[in-house]
């Protein structure tokens, strides 16, 4: 067999990007994996635990990092981002730029996988929740960091006596321009509330929900177990006010099952903010001739859910909110497309 000369570019070193790079690399093709942050891992590296099996995300991350290390085909460039990309015949000329110094690099690739992931919607848009005003109102990724601190036992912050979780902060809100469901918040909120009860059995955890969407293998069982065995209290209704009182926070809502207004006093509020594409996704898509939808997520071509354009594929949350398993599926699917394309090129077909 000839030496395989084709090179793929993977933009984004989160779980989806790592998975895509690994699969392409393991198939014998060269891969350049570009990550903006100084380390690989993306959001996966920020998580304390995972659903629906309460697994350690760090173990999954380490597993991937180890495999990447052992795959000589993969060149990892951290602390770099794609500044520009031009199409020349069947090749993309990509300018890479260091995030800190003026480090510059130009590479030629035969295909690209975009895996730039997501970020959380800015919850301070909701003045009534006081995000950015009250220090104990945090978004769900900030809460994962707190869980990590508490879990390590070196936290400066006292354990909470009660925590309220607000779901659909931004999601399913036409007034905020996001009528879509962010899909993973129900599950990670159940997970986070469950961890609170595991870490601090005396603490109270309230989850304010409109409904919980647990469509996935073991997801319903996972959520029910959080309610039934970990005794997280699910309150149906979207909170409407957060008021400070004696150093605590009072949450005002309606219990829509009873039709009565209720209040609850808590130490901390966790906002499950809507999932939006990472900043720059749109610009990146334009460079590669890919299309984004009205929310900025990448659109796929007809008949192919991971293809964004000619020789451009995508995986993970830059397409839409996705859980860890889904990110891996999509990473592998995008890799399969790249491998298939390269095989056809090798055989002189494409």
């Amino acid at each position: 067999m000839n030496d395989k000369v084709e090179t793929a570019l993977v933009v984004g070193g989160g779980l989806a990007g790592m998975e895509a790079a690994l699969k392409i690399g393991q198939a014998g093709y060269k891969v350049v994996l570009v990550e903006k942050q100084p380390v690989l891992g993306g959001v996966l590296g920020q998580l304390y635990s995972s659903f629906p099996r309460w697994e350690d995300p760090q173990a999954l991350l380490n597993n991937k990092l180890e495999q990447i290390k052992q795959c000589p085909q993969i060149m990892v460039l951290t602390g770099m981002l794609v500044a520009a990309a031009r199409r020349e015949a069947n090749v993309y000329c990509v300018d890479l730029q260091g995030t800190n110094q003026g480090d510059k690099r130009q590479i030629k690739v035969d295909a690209a996988v975009l895996a730039t992931g997501f970020e959380l919607f800015d919850a301070s848009v909701y003045g009534e929740y006081g995000y950015g005003i009250y220090p104990n109102v945090v978004n769900s990724l900030e809460f994962e960091a707190k869980l990590k601190e508490w879990g390590s036992g070196h936290s400066q912050q006292l354990p909470p006596q009660s925590v309220a979780f607000f779901k659909c902060v931004g999601s399913r809100d036409r007034s905020k321009g996001k009528p879509y469901c962010s899909k993973i918040c129900c599950m990670y909120t159940a997970k986070q509330a469950g961890i609170v009860k595991d870490m601090f059995p005396e603490a109270k955890a309230y989850v304010f929900y409109m409904d919980y969407r647990a469509a996935g293998k073991d997801y319903e069982e996972f959520t029910r177990s959080v309610i039934e065995t970990k005794h997280v209290r699910y309150v149906r209704g979207r909170p409407s006010k957060v008021l400070p009182e004696n150093g605590k926070l009072i949450v005002r809502a309606e219990d829509t099952l009873m039709g009565v207004p209720i209040e609850v006093e808590v130490d901390m509020i966790v906002l499950a903010a809507a999932i939006i594409p990472s900043a720059g996704t749109k610009e990146l898509a334009l460079m590669f001739g890919a299309v984004t939808d009205e929310y900025g997520f990448l659109e796929h071509e007809i008949f192919n859910p991971v293809k964004a354009g000619d020789r451009v594929f995508f995986a993970g949350a830059c397409g839409f909110a996705v859980e860890t398993q889904g990110a891996q599926y999509q990473g592998a699917a995008a890799a399969a497309e790249v491998i298939g394309l390269f095989n056809r090129v090798e055989q002189g077909g494409d």
Binding site: P261, E263, V264, E265
Partner: peptide, 12 residues
């Protein structure tokens, strides 16, 4: 019946 003008405090 529950007093509609004074919200129940769940934690109390």
């Amino acid at each position: 019946p529950v007093d509609f003008y004074k919200p129940m405090r769940l934690n109390e």
